[in-house]
Amino acid sequence: MSTSTFIAERHPSDPLFRADRLPHIWCPGCGIGPAMHAYAQAMVESEIPLARHVCVSGIGCTGRVPGYLNMDSYHTTHGRAIPFATAIAIVKPELEVTVYSGDGDLFAIGGNHFIHAARRNVDLNVICINNFNYGMTGGQVGPTTPMGARATTAPFGNYEQPFNLPYLAAATGAVFVARWTSLHLRQLKQAFLRAMKKRGFTFVEVLAPCPVGFGRPNDIGDAMEEMTLYRERCVVDASARLDSLDIDLRDKERPITLGNFVDIERPVFDPLAMMRPAGERENHAALAGKTQEG
């Protein structure tokens, strides 16, 4: 061993994790780990006390994120993280509630909850690790699997149109919409920070390698190769048309567009809004209108 490599027992970020549970269950090269680290660092930098951050997940590989974070964390049922988290956010509005889950959990089994929470503009941050497949169960086709990609339940290639997640989130009412990857970690952390500072329903999509479930059957090779693909093909364009954000990994000429695409204001979900004095409500509406014009 090189004499200039120092051996450590603990990582400086360990207090943010349930370090007694590390190493985690994720495969070598899985993109969830870096994205979780960026989230943990954003929590610290958010200046919101850690005790006021809450993380909620559904089921799947990404569903395990809250279990590794040293915070109030809830690992719920498949697809139901958003309604569970919605209730926490409205019962205790002083909490900063983040749903951290995967593409299958949030957009297949949980798709209905996503669109309604976005429509209501619940004060929630939704972080979606999109690895284009169901990883935990062994690489099945999902709602974001690109056309043509192979999966254990799409052995001849996926013949379904996948979701364009930022487009979906924006259309259904999210006030902040971003897409980054598990390689673009500084930008990702900034997007998480923006989401935490913002009231209302925010959505950050994180493209992440799943070398075992998605990479291997799709000739991407190992995780390094997918990360390299991100480095070579990602372009940052915050003003890109939302309907142009489809991802097609097969088309080597086609860029993968990243950025913070949407940052608007809308009235935030408040079940007691109609019980408040009219002036208070109007101010709220005026604020929303002003920002939209600006």
Partner: peptide, 15 residues
């Protein structure tokens, strides 16, 4: 910078 490594956690992804 000085590089610190926690060898037992590594899964050799090479990132």
């Amino acid at each position: 910078g000085r590089v610190y490594v926690i060898p037992q956690r590594c899964k050799e992804c090479r990132f």
